[in-house]
Design a binder for these strands. Sequence first.
RNA 1: UCCUCGGUAGCUCAAUAGGCAGAGCGGGUGGCUGUUAACCACUAGGUUGCAGGUUCGAGUCCUGCCCGGGGAGCCA
Length: 461
Amino acid sequence: MKIRDALAAQPAGQAVTVAGWVRTRRDSKGGFSFIEVNDGSCLPNIQAVVPASLPTYEADVLRLHTGASVEIDGTLAASQGKGQSVELQATAVRVLGFADPEAYPIQKQKTSLEHLRTIAHLRPRTNTFGAVARVRSALAGTVHQFFQSRGFVWLPTPIITASDCEGAGAMFQVTTLDLDKPARTQDGALDFNGDFFGRRAFLTVSGQLEAETHACALGDVYTFGPTFRAENSNTPRHLAEFWMIEPEMAFADLARDMAVAEAFVKALVDAALTRCAQELAFFEQRVQPGLTAMLRGVLEHDFVHLTYSDAVAQLAKAGRAWEFPVEWGKDLQTEHERYLTEEYCRKPVIVTDYPAGIKAFYMRMNDDGRTVRAMDVLVPKMGEIIGGSQREERIGILESRMRQSGLDPRNYWWYLDLRRFGSVPHAGFGLGFERVLQFITGLANIRDVIPFPRTPKSAEF
RNA sequence: UCCUCGGUAGCUCAAUAGGCAGAGCGGGUGGCUGUUAACCACUAGGUUGCAGGUUCGAGUCCUGCCCGGGGAGCCA
């Protein structure tokens, strides 16, 4: 029986068997020991009361320490002690595996997140990482529910891509060439004709361009999968491998794009509060005081809409000595974004209509000729969690924007075909799944919301 | 990649001015108790990240390297 179900049961002496890992053991000379067991099904442990009269008591039970695995038969009973309502009166304890307390790296007192990162194979046995894993799983389900219930089609865009210039950052190269003695052309360059795909290939940095193909056929689609960036980013907000959700909607403008983005973020927050209440209460208590009130506030208020130009004007009026000067045409710096979300608006903000010069070629040009229909969703503490736009559907403008960005339109022939044949207005955005998890759990470092973080110089486990 | 802070017992940390390397937790032993961050006593536990240098003497000062945290950039 899962401990989650055992703790939720009305204790009436029913016989159950639970299996899990020992969190702590306390001995009483009153003739029994208390063993707290966790099986990962929920945050709380179940307390087993183990009588010293069990035949295995001396040899096994008294040797149990944090980390050992056990299977316990017993009956569920109302607890005589404080701190739990249900406990397990053990009738048999079978040790599945001992854990040497001298060697086991997780102790029952507080351990730093930095240290736990070095033991990623064992950290899911802690309260924090068990809770993160359950929240992550629940919200992954919510992602699909949210879009499926709105008629979006899930689209698995390729992880391996041949476009070497999607414009979203440095890419990891995928190759089967022998790196010790690679084939070369007559002029000495690497010969990719002999590579697996007969050309250079990479891990995807975004599924957007491919998603547009299906949006322009199925209407509304979304991607949900891994994404890879080879940037040498060393921050608490960046991973080399992360998960991204990218909806793409045909016959949609920026207004609908923003409406879906806001509804989506709120759906994720709402799901966390309702489906992961124990985990959120734990994060509130141990990770970020005020977390749940902040998340409820997100649900209760509309996101603020602000154009880039208005944001710049507001920052100029703030009377601050900015480390980076505020100037129309330059991208907003972290300090600017934090001011907007944490002080000026005190809630999530959607900044729209950025200067064309600082945004990607595929974003739709506004009539003013100098801004594009882009939108970034900024949240307090985290900054950007969503970046999106209405896409440029006019082929002539799109081609000239490509050339301005130094891209050869011929490499995007299939992308341009979408505009050549039955072009429609469409829009979409990308949401960083781990960043939302950070926002919702309050964990400050993105490496703690993914089981096995990949960052520069770090791919252990 | 740049700036900055750090690396001391299994874990979390301390070590005054360069002068015998410590505490709490965890472990072991004993005591006590329907306990629950249990409690009390005793006890074991160290190449102070690595390599070099200065000094009578280096955890402490200097140089290089490795690893980690924070800030910035790139972005989701």
